[in-house]
């Protein structure tokens, strides 16, 4: 049952990415290109996605998920190096290609060789990440010393 819900959620997610145009890298890069022909579509997508999700978070208060023991607890409000360095690296890759993980999977069937190469490199990056994460967890002196 949980796997079935996952499939439905993944399918809706993918359909939303396709309909909204977020599998088209020119629309994503158009949003990031403030000095070019700026394309505001991504803001509408984000706004549209945040709305039902904000209602869902409000609904979680004092309740339990249908098929799980509890809702995810909020992460520690910690703004560390991993968050800042990681998000900056992600943004650079996102800007270069116009792809992020969700749309990369959603467009795999029609994204051609380019989509496959990006996906392969992204998976390699995800394998390389844990040792880098451990290094960033160490005190600064250990990283540079």
């Amino acid at each position: 049952m949980r796997a079935f819900i996952s499939f439905i959620a993944g399918g809706l997610f993918g359909l939303g990415l396709l309909i909204s145009g977020m599998t088209d890298t020119t629309k994503v890069q158009g949003w990031l290109d403030i000095f070019g022909a700026w394309d505001p579509t991504l803001a509408f997508v984000m706004g549209g996605a945040i709305l039902p999700m904000a209602l869902a978070w409000l609904f979680t208060k004092g309740r339990k998920p249908v098929l799980a023991a509890s809702f995810p607890t909020p992460p520690k409000p910690e703004i560390g190096r991993k968050l800042v360095i990681g998000s900056t690296m992600f943004g650079m890759g996102w800007g270069l290609s116009g792809l992020c993980p969700g749309p990369a999977v959603a467009s795999l069937s029609f994204g051609g060789a380019g989509g496959l190469i990006f996906m392969a490199a992204m998976l390699v990056g995800m394998v390389l990440a844990p040792p880098i994460r451990r290094r960033l967890d160490q005190p600064t002196a250990a990283v540079y010393g």
């Binding site: 996952s6 993944g10 309909i19 145009g21 629309k27 945040i50 039902p52 249908v66 098929l67």
Partner: peptide, 30 residues
């Protein structure tokens, strides 16, 4: 494009809400 963006966004948010409310999980692709 903006209307399709908003509609697609609502689908994405609904997917995330479904995954949260039923499975108790965050819909984060990465």
């Amino acid at each position: 494009d903006w209307i399709l963006g908003l509609f697609g966004g609502l689908l994405i948010g609904t997917a995330a809400a479904l995954y949260l409310l039923v499975s108790g999980r965050i819909l984060g692709a990465s």
